[in-house]
Design a protein around this nucleic acid. Structure first.
Lengths: 116, 116
DNA sequence: AATATATATACCGATATCGGCATATGTCAA
DNA sequence: TTGACATATGCCGATATCGGTATATATATT
């Protein structure tokens, strides 16, 4: 055994900042690969490769138009992430933030007490 | 240049399935490392390493109790992910799903037309 | 003080990843 | 048909990652 699966799920696909950037651009509407290359300042092969990953996890769909390929987001693939994160949503409400701060203060006091 | 930053942000921290598992366990309340080791069926060093990553991105906090170390989730570090994904939330509403299906059908028809 | 228990760190090998470059494939234009 | 343009794929080197094993560190127990 060596390493876990990688580019097989949306979590991993989206872990790469460039790919999030690509999705953010595509959120503004369909774009051809060349446009993305320009806007990202990255090599064309690199962009194509990122798009491949996004395609494989279903995060983008492609449409052929002449010799260009127009990509668009398919947000449905993000739902698993959304659902997972949503389970933790309560944890960053103000009251929980406060609770966490209090806990940290208590800890600090405790360790301050420790010194003699 | 070789590779982008990795374990520096919550997106990456959470891309690893084991770490999500750990967070899910901790969501049920504070646990010591040993407990997690048992529940995950993973080596203790591995668990400690995953916890280190989670600690470094602020996803968990530790509290010392004797020779044990009790970890708990700090959901605030998930907010960036939540916020980012939320921007795409509209895209998986029923109407958009429908739209996407229609677009795919259109494409299919188009390529069917192509054969002669 | 010596031992046991709990956790963290260091090192290793295998592999996946990312960007860069060259090239293949496919489509339009002359 | 030949050549330009658009995109995808293949190969490379550098590096990060993951699990495994051994070991260090710290705290409790005897």
């Amino acid at each position: 055994m060596a390493r876990a699966a990688t580019t097989t799920d949306p979590f991993n696909a989206v872990a790469e900042p460039r790919r999030r950037q690509i999705l953010d651009l595509l959120a503004g509407g369909e774009r051809a690969v060349g446009d993305l290359v320009e806007e990202l300042g990255l090599g064309q092969p690199q962009v194509s490769k990122h798009l491949r990953v996004l395609r494989e996890v279903g995060l983008v769909k492609a449409r052929e138009e002449g010799r260009r390929r127009l990509y668009r987001v398919d947000g449905r693939a993000l739902k698993p992430i959304h659902d997972w994160v949503k389970g933790y949503e309560a944890l960053w409400s103000e009251r929980f933030e406060l609770l966490d701060d209090v806990l940290e203060d208590l800890e600090k006091e405790r360790s301050d007490d420790t010194r003699d």
